[in-house]
Design a binder for these strands. Structure first.
Lengths: 239, 239
DNA sequence: CGCAATTTTGATTTTGATCAACTTCTGTGG
DNA sequence: CCACAGAAGTTGATCAAAATCAAAATTGCG
């Protein structure tokens, strides 16, 4: 029984390898990683992997499910800073001060693989491929955040919503899911928080894009009807 | 002559150590770093260290001067994503794709220390303290970006301007400069771009805060008159 | 099933953008 | 060293986008 569990949770057996792990590890390197990534943890919908202020010990690869991270300022304000889906790695905000700076909340029943960070640092000394991969994952987060700032600082409501949907679409596609047809895991309010908009604005924008025949919205289900035109609306606007 | 230049550019002799390098390196470790951080490069005002699309080879520690980074989307839009001052490290956006995703422009005549990244990776295998420091620096950038998103997504114009000034103040203070009295290195337009506001709004907000007796503005010179109240305005608003 | 949470839609207000005019500053060449 | 052109900054009037307030409809837990 424990045998089976172990086998299932081994990175070498995981079908997400390409996403959270570097490709091209040797057999022996893979087994090192298998030993590193020990625990797998179930997180029920609404529960947190970690919260702001928690001591940082590990980063987490999403094995299954969907997460949001949100930061909260001293006053009541809070903002969703990111959504994470299968194969993506979260928690790297905690490295700098050994403390997490945001809450990571499951938007559906989920499962994460726990990667103890200090062990990862130790091991990556011996497996340079792993070290480079870690740096890339962190850098990718930086680049993504820059894009986000661009969006929040320079785009209008409609453009933000379109960019959000196209980004989701592209990430689903990368995972082999339908790119044009998917279910939102988050509420309008969470989308709004992420995009720096109010939930009413998100709702109105959905309705408007539907009227224009660009997409179909039915509660949480989205169908992108005209991706070409949607993409054009992103780059063309404000020329 | 070359002797002197070498000595001057050696990290072990640099008065910024605490900022861009880890504390507590041994003599031998420091000399390793000295060899790594080879070149020092002067960047004239208005010139770029690197531009979007440039091949990534190194990260850069600001030895002297002041920089902005800005991202540009396919259409003409561009946005300032960060300002960097003495002792801060920039260029880490390039790691993920071996290509830079933004322009890094000097706002005054400046000097940077060039840290070849692949060599840094190699060496950090032998100097774990250095590896950990690198990870912290990268993580700090992620945390900073999250704060920025919060600001762009959840704050009003006046709050953004205040947050911006207080952040500058705090960074100047950390470098031993006056915290309440400093010169802006960037234009109103650049501040606006960074804060997701128009330059007129920045100007008006300055004027308004001055009328309120919270600060004094004279062209590029800022004096924070009532930091206590300014801080309060940040956290109290929207309660 | 029932109630709280979520979503949609409408009316109104507010914030910051836009347009415009004018001033000040900076740096350059005569 | 001054004149001048272009850049940068201020201020005012108006406009537009998104927020806010409000009410009704729908959904999905427990």
């Amino acid at each position: 029984m424990t045998e089976i569990t172990k086998l299932q949770s081994a990175c070498s057996q995981c079908n997400l390898q390409e996403l959270c792990l570097p490709v091209g590890l040797s057999e022996t390197e893979l087994s090192v990683v298998d030993n590193l990534v020990g625990e797998r943890r179930k997180i029920a919908r609404g529960e947190a992997i970690f919260r702001s202020g928690d001591r940082f010990t590990a980063i987490y690869a999403v094995k299954l499910g969907f997460f949001k991270t949100e930061v909260l300022s001293e006053d009541g304000r809070h903002q969703v800073t990111s959504f994470y889906m299968t194969g993506e790695v979260l928690g790297m905000d905690g490295i700098s001060a050994e403390t997490h700076h945001c809450d990571a909340i499951a938007l559906e029943d989920s499962e994460v693989c726990l990667i103890p960070f200090h062990e990862l640092e130790t091991i990556s000394v011996k497996v340079p491929t792993l070290q480079r991969h870690l740096h890339r994952v962190m850098s990718r987060e930086i680049v993504r955040d820059q894009g986000m700032m661009m969006m929040l600082g320079a785009m209008h409501a409609e453009e933000r919503v379109i960019a959000f949907l196209l980004n989701l679409s592209q990430r689903y596609a990368a995972r082999g899911y339908a790119a044009r047809d998917f279910n939102l895991r988050m509420t309008r309010e969470e989308i709004g928080s992420y995009l720096g908009l109010k939930l009413e604005t998100v709702s109105r924008t959905f309705s408007h894009l539907q009227e224009e025949g660009l997409l179909q919205v039915e509660k949480k289900h989205i169908r992108l009807v005209d991706t070409v035109r949607l993409k054009k609306m992103l780059s063309q606007d404000r020329l």
